[in-house]
Design a protein around this nucleic acid. Structure first.
Lengths: 144, 144
DNA sequence: GTAACTGCAAAATATTTGCATCCTT
DNA sequence: AAGGATGCAAATATTTTGCAGTTAC
């Protein structure tokens, strides 16, 4: 069975599920995320997509995907927003990550460690936690 | 005893300790951090400093402070870098935070919870952790 | 006096918006 | 056919760089 077809079908399904029309740029960008181990920054996507799309389309597509809960942003100390695919628990605007993110200090790749669950954090009495983000920096498997 | 004087002395000491000359902008910006409970974004500093400094000076001052380990950056999901004072464990370029950061989803203030220590994270075998960043989002004491 | 720091101008980047055209449904 | 999505142009915003003048030591 052709995997290409499977992936395409999955992509179409994801878009349809979110009431988005199925267009070239959305398919291509979603494809990039699926092919990718790690997370992608806006710039990565422009590069990987070649000359295919206008810069503005990339901005708009990423924004739409975040709004729909298809991808989520990962905070990093160096001000470059990165995006990664959400697992199914996410939906419209309400993203809930329960896994840890990892940024390699050498190759700068960003990974979602889906199997590493964010720990409980004990806050001072006056604070209420809604969401916990954990970003670990270090060397990834390829760089050590 | 005049607290103003104490603070000024502390500021001067901090700058001297890091081989930085004691200038108006540095004093003023460091002052802002000391007066502040939470963290500051570049924009906040420009606003709070009034018309006092050139935008470029703020950029350069923040950069210098980060390099010297006087302040550190806090990653947030919304791409606005925030800065907060480092505790003494930090030095030249090697910043080590062991506390949790808290961002209020209502008032957007960012706090360093110095008493809340970052937990140990168990990573997959192939990864090495150098630094763990934890950012908790929720409601702060003033907003709940 | 000298080296370091600042402010201004301007360049380089990054992001947002409006609108006409094209594509999906 | 109608509404949504794209691409282009241009407006904004953000960050960086060079350099001349000023300040700290």
């Amino acid at each position: 069975m052709d995997t290409g077809t499977n992936t395409e079908a999955a992509i179409a399904r994801t878009l349809k599920k979110n009431n988005l029309s199925i267009t070239e740029s959305r398919k291509k960008i979603l494809q990039l995320f699926l092919e990718q181990t790690g997370a992608l920054a806006h710039g990565d996507i422009e590069k990987k997509a070649g000359e295919k799309f206008d810069r503005v389309t990339v901005y708009r597509t990423l924004q739409t995907f975040v709004e729909k809960g298809i991808i989520h942003t990962i905070p990093t100390a160096d001000n470059s927003i990165r995006y990664a695919l959400c697992k199914d628990a996410c939906s419209d605007g309400h993203h809930h990550d329960h896994h840890v993110h990892f940024v390699c200090t050498n190759c700068k790749k960003t990974y979602c460690l889906d199997d590493v669950v964010t720990p409980e954090i004990k806050l001072p009495k006056d604070y209420t936690a809604e969401q916990v983000e954990v970003v670990v920096e270090g060397l990834c498997r390829d760089c050590r």
